[in-house]
Amino acid sequence: MLNISNNMSERWISLYVENRVGVLAKIAGLFSGKSYNLDSLTVGTTEDPTMSRMTISVISDDATFEQIKKQLNRAVEVIKVIDLTQTSSYKKELLFVKVFHCTKLDKSELFQIANVFNAQVADYGKDSIMIECVQTKRKNDDFISLLKESYSNIEVVRGGSVAIESISKTEQ
């Protein structure tokens, strides 16, 4: 019998695929068709224009994660599957937040918050402000919660994480 472990956790895959119509649908369809819990998926071309690289994060247990990797490997369009879960890597996500109906005081506070979070004010209006934040997913989560506490009218867009193996750092 298979031990169904309950060690649900976040796991990361970097995936090289053919840069071709339908490949994104194929990969996304694999996750939905098999009920895998896809948390984030980003895709872009690489140094080789015929190849795309995806960064995928999933919430799963060990057995399901093994199966996900095998299923990805099976796809003809998949060139390489790299498991980044245990590898030290850089993971960052782009986040834009607009805050509306700001008072002067709000604005100056937002400048300070941005500063603390290592984010930048990207755009500025009479009573609104836009902040650009490139951080880990979790930090971006924190950033959004903080803003939500203090400001009632915000608009958020986030890009999903991209990840790449570190060169020399061993810390994740």
Partner: peptide, 25 residues
């Protein structure tokens, strides 16, 4: 599945890696 071949060590030969260790240990 929990009571499949309960006394056995299992050797599984398959051409499909995804078929191995999916349903049974």
């Amino acid at each position: 599945i929990e009571e499949f071949a309960p006394k056995a060590k299992i050797i599984h030969v398959d051409i499909d890696t995804a078929s191995i260790s999916r349903n049974i240990h």
